[in-house]
Design a protein around this nucleic acid. Sequence first.
RNA 1: GGCGGUGUAGCUCAGUCGGUUAGAGCGGCGGCUUCAUAAGCCGUAGGUCGGCAGUUCGAGUCUGCCCACCGCUACCA
Length: 518
Amino acid sequence: MTGAFYATTPIFYVNAEPHIGHTYTTVVVDTLARYHRLAGEKTFFLTGSDEHGEKIAEVALELGETPQAVADRYSEAFSRTWQTLGFSFDRFIRTTDPDHKQVVQNILQKIYDAGEIDFREYEGLYCIGCERFFTERDMVGGKCPDHDRPLESRKESNYFFKMTHHFEWLIDYINSHPDFIRPDRYRNEVLGMLREDSGLGDLSISRPKSRLEWGIELPFDTDYICYVWFDALINYLTGIGYPDGPDFATLWGASQHFIGKDILKPHAVFWPCMLHAIGLEPYQRLNVHGFWNVDDRKVSKSLGNKIDPLVMRDKYGFDSFRYFLLRDMAFGTDSDFSEEALVTRINADLANNLGNLVSRTLNMTGRFCGGNVPEPGQPGAQEQAVADAAATAAGQVDAHLRSCEFHRALEVIQGLVDTVNRYLEARAPWKLAKQKAAGWQAHVNTTLYTSCEALRVLSLLVAPFMPETAPKILERLGIPDALATTRLPDDAATWGSLAPGTPTSKGAPLFPRIEVES
RNA sequence: GGCGGUGUAGCUCAGUCGGUUAGAGCGGCGGCUUCAUAAGCCGUAGGUCGGCAGUUCGAGUCUGCCCACCGCUACCA
């Protein structure tokens, strides 16, 4: 086992149902986790739910239930959906988990003892929706612009994490570690946030119990609970056994967070400062992606244009949906989702190209080679070209995945499919089989061996992206358990491991073409 | 107002250190083919590279200004 990979999604606030944004982040991390596992790295994939705070307490009050009961139900909805979609997470953490509570309290006490926390009085206008105080300039017409609800005047004494003391260090760290936050555009934004005139101050990390009881109690003042972000971010440590779990050091040294751009500030500023105060190395990397717009508009409750991943799964198959999400968004930028674009992509890439290549290859293997992987003859220049293309593709997919260029990786895979389709066209085994000229069988055998072997490579390369599809192809190639022993990228780059004589089966179309009524 | 981003073929986008005829996919059109999911292959489609000016032997690719959209941020109200 070489290398390690620890990847996280945000923990999702449990007052909403999973939509395309949550799903995208999780698809990204799932794909990477699967790849790194296939690469033989020690891999841990963490996702979960964020359950404390006023919104949950409010809902509980309205329903006459306990906050815990509300959180249980919402969290269950998330975790069940994630399981149904087949995500390969290693733990679904909840901020109400006992070990998390303990870790948060340990850390609070630790940095309190280190003098990193102040007690201050603060007065201001507060939005329950945002769970934060507003300054005059933040509000629009006396209301919170995001939640369109009146602000409440509050005067509170609270505990503050002396975050600003760490800014100088953080600026230096970001400047000396170019890959700490990527893509670059977000790195620049963070540096902007940290400029002296940005107004970013110390971080309030508590709420008095008189206002809110639903949270983790401060160990040094039982009249207070911990503010949500401080609580939530620490899940990334709890999830892998901080402080002395057996894998903690290894995994933390290989930690990568994946977030949407809306929560850049807590992850790029609060969190590194917290880690610095705790005395831990910063996470290895923060990966920030853009938003999916739907039908050219922002996703919003009022528009009702949320995309439910379960509906997409039932309608198109989740592998196809995953493929679209990863293929049509350049990581970091915003993209547009529409069912029309989804169908176009599925038909072009999956039905017409990949799926059809599987069909024609295995059909001919059945008709012209008795259904078994044929014994190839001496490879010629054409065969060598296909083998070279496969090896090149394996290396490129590896590189692109490691730099979060999923769309590029899938382009490369699609390019390999094109290469094999062109190869078949050039070899035209169906012609040879019909004419039955001298030596036709050897020619056809070599051709179909090459094509079958290319399918084997394609299956491996596609496995992290489409975890349901890859095993289906491998099963038809007669090697259903291949993934269990696969090491990427080498096993995809090494030509010729498909054994002649292996029985194949044609099967139904993997991606039936979707006909749209017009 | 400041900072940053984006603006390239009908659509989605590539275009590294400036260099000969500006590229890909999808769609459209023409042809070939029939093993395959009416799939595949080949060939095409002639876009003032947002606008103007400048630097240069030469700019999509650098500079300035302007326009449009987006993000962050500031201030005024």
